[in-house]
Each structure stands twice: as C-alpha cells, then as structure tokens.
C-alpha cells in the first residue's frame, strides 16, 4: 500500500506539467481551431529565459551548467515569473504576427506553428548549446523537505508544484467565468461570428488566449525544470503526454484536459512501477496505446458525446 501511495505521490509533479500543457493546447485549439504544436517548444524556450534570469548573462552559462550561478541574479521564483511575463508577450506576438494572417487556413496555421517549433529549437541550440542545465525548484528540495505519510514520502516541491498549478488553473477558471474578458473569451469560443456582431473584439480575445496559453506553458516548464533539468528536447515527451491529455478533453475542454494530465501521469507511474516489462522510457508508448484505444472506444474523449461530435 505504501508503495502504491509513493507512486501516486511521484506522479503529482509530472501530472501538473502534463495538465498545464494540455490546458494550454486546449485553450488555443478551442478559441482559434489551431493545434499549436509549438506549445512544448514555447515552454522550453521560457524555461531557458528563466534560466538566464536566474543566472545572469554569464558567458560561462552558455557552455556549462554551474549550479552555483542559480539564483545569482534573480531568485528562481522571480525568474519563473519573469519568464511567464516574457512568454505571454511572445504568445500574444505569435498570435498577432504569425497566426492571425493565415488563421483562415488550418494547414498553413499548423505549418506556421511547426515553423515556430523548429525556429525555437534551433535558437536554443545555437544560443545555449544542447547540454543539460539545471534550474532549481522555487520550492524546498532538500532530502529533509518531505512529509512521511503511510510509509510514503511526499516531497514539498511536488506538493508546491501541484498546488501552484491547481491555483493558477483555478484562477484561470475564475477569470473565464467571473470577468468581462472571460465572458468575451467564452463568447468567442462558442460563436466567433456572433461575438463579432455583438461587438466583442475577437482579435484581442484571441491574442489574450495565446498569451495565457504561453504563460501557462512557461509556468509548467519553469516548475518541472527542477525535476527533469533543462535541455532543448525537454518538452518532447511532455508534449506527447500533454496532447494525449488534451485529447481526453476532446481538445476543447480545459477542465477535462487538466484531469487527463494527472490521469496520464498516474498511468505512466503505475505502469512503470507495476508492469515488469514496462520501463520508464516505454511508458510513453503505453500512453500512445491508451490514446489510440480511447479514440477507438470513445472518440469524444471524456467529453459528453453530443458536444464532441458537433465538432466534425
């Protein structure tokens, strides 16, 4: 039982990252109909921004991971906040300059997001090299920073990451339900032409959607970087799980995508832990299989069938 509990606790941090990416993907797809395949790369790029903010513009940084430098310029939490703000600006800029002129053509829009994916990957590799670097966690991360519950260890930083993510996504839900901007966002996702006719400034709302999605991705990248380290391909695996989780929400429900993120992380940890021929690398394959099976059995994901099938 304690082992099961331990594995459940272990899945929390990863679940938060998957959930955040899934929510970001769902938000963009829901509002613009564009599958933002650069979401993972945007998050990776933001993590590098956080790293630069935390270490300062040291030339040594470019070629080595010197942990002494972390926090030398800004504390890690401030660096992550700074990265979120910069990412939101980049997200809004991306929508305005890259996506909006071609948003009428989904193939061109997906192509543009892939272009961004490659561009960010190339930029990071050429600016900071392909080596693994370390960005600390904004939460305590020493061996003593834990609670022992039922024989299992619950780490403070896992709880911190999970609670932060739940709080931010809760805030997002409140923003969507209780504010004018949220009302406009819901109107645009529900009926864009109708929203335009009643005077909603659709372009601004879409820009806000992209900015928020980029911000959430940056938060996910910054928080998970303490667990998986920073490198150019850090988000590949997370993106697949994020996409899978978004699929569980029918690509349109951020709430269900959020649940899907934790579900996939739980599944990943349990499969890796209890099934002898499944190691940590192959869990990705099992996630893919689960995704295919879900699409076979329930094409609408966890969404009510009628709502999902209206999208066809």
């Amino acid at each position: 039982m304690s082992l099961f509990l331990q594995r459940t606790f272990d899945s929390l941090a990863n679940g938060s990252a998957y959930a955040a990416l899934a929510v970001a993907i769902s938000m963009v797809f829901r509002s613009t109909g564009v599958l933002n395949l650069a979401q993972g790369q945007l998050a990776m790029f933001s993590t590098y921004i956080a790293l630069v903010l935390a270490t300062g513009p040291s030339p040594y940084m470019k070629f080595s991971s010197n942990t002494d430098l972390i926090g030398a310029a800004w504390p890690v939490w401030a660096a992550i906040l700074g990265a979120i703000v910069i990412s939101m600006v980049i997200g809004a800029f991306t929508e305005r300059v890259i996506i909006r002129p071609i948003s009428a053509d989904p193939v061109a829009a997906v192509g543009a997001t892939l272009g961004l994916y490659l561009l960010l990957g190339a930029f990071v590799r050429k600016q900071w090299g392909g080596r693994t670097m370390f960005l600390g966690s904004p939460f305590p991360q020493t061996a003593e920073d834990r609670w022992d519950i039922g024989g299992a260890r619950l780490w403070h930083d896992s709880v911190g990451i999970t609670l932060t993510m739940i709080a931010v996504l809760g805030l997002l839900a409140v923003l969507q339900r209780r504010t004018k901007a949220g009302l406009a966002f819901r109107a645009v996702t529900s009926n864009r032409t109708g929203s335009l006719l009643v005077g909603v400034r659709v372009s601004r709302v879409l820009m806000l959607g992209w900015a928020l999605a980029a911000g959430i991705g940056a938060l996910a990248g910054g928080l998970i970087a303490g667990e998986i380290n920073v490198r150019p391909d850090m988000m590949g695996r997370l993106l697949v799980f994020g996409l899978a989780a978004a699929t569980l929400g029918g690509l349109r429900s951020p709430a269900l995508a959020f649940v899907g993120g934790y579900l996939f992380a739980f599944l990943e940890t349990m499969l890796g832990g209890y099934v002898s021929f499944v190691d940590s690398q192959v869990t990705l394959v099992w996630a893919l299989l689960v995704l295919i099976i879900v699409l076979f059995v329930r094409p609408s994901g966890l969404m009510p069938r009628t709502e999902a099938w209206q999208q066809r």
Partner: peptide, 9 residues
C-alpha cells in the same frame, strides 16, 4: 532548423 522554419513560414 532555421532554414526549415523559414521554409515553413
């Protein structure tokens, strides 16, 4: 990566 990105865009 840049060449492919430029091509796509």
């Amino acid at each position: 990566g840049f060449i492919y990105a430029a091509l796509l865009l």
